[in-house]
Structure formats: C-alpha cells, structure tokens
Simulated assay, not measured.
Amino acid sequence: MGLAGLLRAAAAGRGARGRGLARAALDTQVPRDVVLFRHDRARFFRFVALLCVGQGLFWAWLARLAYVGVRPRRAAPEPEPEVAPEPAPAPARDQPFTSNLWRYGFCGSCLAVGFVVVGGGLLFSRRSVRQVVLHRGGQAVTLRTHSPFGLRDSLTVPLRDVSCRVHRSQVPAALPVKVRGVTFYFLLDRAGQFLNPQLFDLTVGAYRKL
C-alpha cells in the first residue's frame, strides 16, 4: 500500500471515530423521559426513621433526667455554738457528679448526641437516591430520593450541574453524585439497577467541573 493509501485509511479511521462520537452525543438527546437508575428501599428507610425517632426520644429523656435529677449538694447548717464562737469552717465543696458544671455538661452532651444521630439518619435518607430520570432532550435530570417514613422527594436540575467523580465500576458500595449548589453528595447504591448503563455513563455518570 502506498503513501496515498495510508493517508486515506487514516482519514477514514478519523471519520469513523468522529461519527461514533457524534452518535454518542446524539444518543443523550433522548426523545422521551428515560429511567437510568432504580433502587427502591422504602421499608428500610421507614425503619431508619423509626430508629431516629427512638434515639431522639431516648437522648432527650436522658438530658432531662440529668437536668432535673442531678442537683448540687448544699452544706448542712452549722449548729449554734454554746461557748465562745470559733472561726466558721470553709464551705464544703460539691461532691463529684453533683456540681452544676457536670449537670449542664452532661445535659448538653446528651442533646448533642441525639441531634447528631437524628440529623445523620435524616440526611442519609434525603441523600439516598431511589431513581434517576433523564428528561426528554437530555438537558435535565431528576434525582428522586427517599425521605423519612417512606415518603418521597425529588430534585430536578440541569444536566450540566451534575457531576460524578468516579466511574460506577470503581466503587464497591455507593456511587457519589455531586449537584451544584447542594450540600453533600447524593448516593446511588451499587445494589440498584442501572437500566441503561451506557446512557448513564454519558450523562449523569460523566465528570464535570462544578
């Protein structure tokens, strides 16, 4: 094969790759809404919500018990002197675990632990994705998440505001997805179904600098 033949083969290869990229770009402009991912765990998140409520009530009760039940001890009054008065003894110090400092500290710690447990459980529910929908035209995507007690919530954003830091095959448990302007990552459980893996990789699963 001469030099002209090699040039024609190279040009044909570049043209084929260009047509392949163009087809991949056109494939993202879907003619109707497409479900890319699905993983419904409503029963599990109802249990998480009940656990959060139970933990919140327990730590609130423990904080109230510490506030009401633990009081600082007061020194007993000295008896009346019968002879000449003597110097008054120094006031007795509070015993351990009965001072106001320990009382308020333990009460605040209980409330803080309860807040962290309840807030963490609710945040985990709100960031666990149950369904990803690519809308018609491929320019917008909806992330449908779980909410407390099995309720549903959704967020629709432009596709350009969604970024996936790693490929879905590189994570063992959950795939983190970042949305511009939203605190914390959304989590896609690997146990869920990727109904259209190639389209997912080209749209929601692609990395974008946000």
Rank of each mutant, 00 (worst) to 15 (best):
S169Q: 09
A173G: 05
F58S: 00
L175M: 08
G114W: 02
S147N: 12
A140L: 04
N100T: 10
R73E: 10
T183N: 10
V113D: 03
R136C: 02
G105C: 14
A63C: 03
P77K: 13
L57T: 08
E80A: 09
V162S: 08
F97L: 15
F58Q: 08
A76G: 06
L159M: 00
L155K: 07
S147L: 08
D153M: 05
W102L: 08
L188G: 07
F58R: 07
S109D: 07
L134T: 10
S169W: 12
L175Q: 01
A66H: 10
P172K: 08
L175F: 00
G138M: 04
A173S: 08
A90I: 05
V179Y: 02
A75P: 15
R64I: 10
H135S: 10
A191Q: 12
L159E: 00
V177C: 03
D189Y: 06
G69E: 09
E78A: 14
R160Q: 10
F115Y: 04
L101N: 13
R64Q: 14
P96W: 11
S109A: 11
V129Q: 02
P148H: 00
F106A: 09
G69Q: 03
P77G: 07
G181S: 14
P72D: 05
V83H: 13
L143H: 03
L122R: 08
T142S: 06
Q131D: 11
V117S: 09
S163H: 01
S154K: 02
E86P: 12
L151D: 08
R93H: 11
G105A: 04
F115T: 15
S109I: 08
F149W: 10
R152I: 06
A92Y: 02
V70W: 13
V171S: 12
A191N: 10
R130V: 08
L122Q: 05
P77D: 02
R74H: 15
R64G: 14
R103H: 09
P158I: 01
R73I: 15
A76M: 02
T142G: 04
G120R: 01
L143Q: 00
F184K: 12
S109H: 05
W59A: 03
L159Q: 00
P79Y: 08
P87V: 06
P81C: 02
S128I: 02
P172N: 06
P72E: 04
Q170G: 02
R73W: 11
R190V: 14
L187F: 04
L65E: 13
H167N: 15
S125G: 14
S147G: 12
A112P: 05
G108K: 14
L188P: 07
G108W: 04
Q139S: 13
K178L: 09
S99F: 11
E78R: 15
T183I: 13
